[in-house]
Amino acid sequence: MKVSKKDVENVAVLSRLKIADDKMDKYLEEFNNFLEYVDVLQKVDTENVKPTAHVLPLQNVFREDVIKPSLDREKALANAPEKENGYFKVPRIIE
């Protein structure tokens, strides 16, 4: 096994996901399967292949520095779980 239970837990925290205890073994196995596949990919000879920064053959797509209308504040805040005086309201940030 390449990854441990702890690695899976850490990825879950970083992804803001909750993993039920009885699913842990299943995810652990799937994680390792992914990584084994990556091992296969690593064996491909890429000696003469240029690194890809982007999948589309595009570069230098720019926008002029011109002001466009913004959203109405009511609309911007429409999906906020909580709001206050035109602000998005969020729970306590640090422990």
Partner: peptide
């Protein structure tokens, strides 16, 4: 700049909260 890095919202300082958003 007059506008934000990836959109046309204004960058001016001191506007009422959440009015330069898109």
């Amino acid at each position: 700049t007059k506008t934000k890095i990836f959109c046309g919202c204004k960058t001016t300082f001191g506007a009422p909260q959440n009015t330069h958003v898109c």
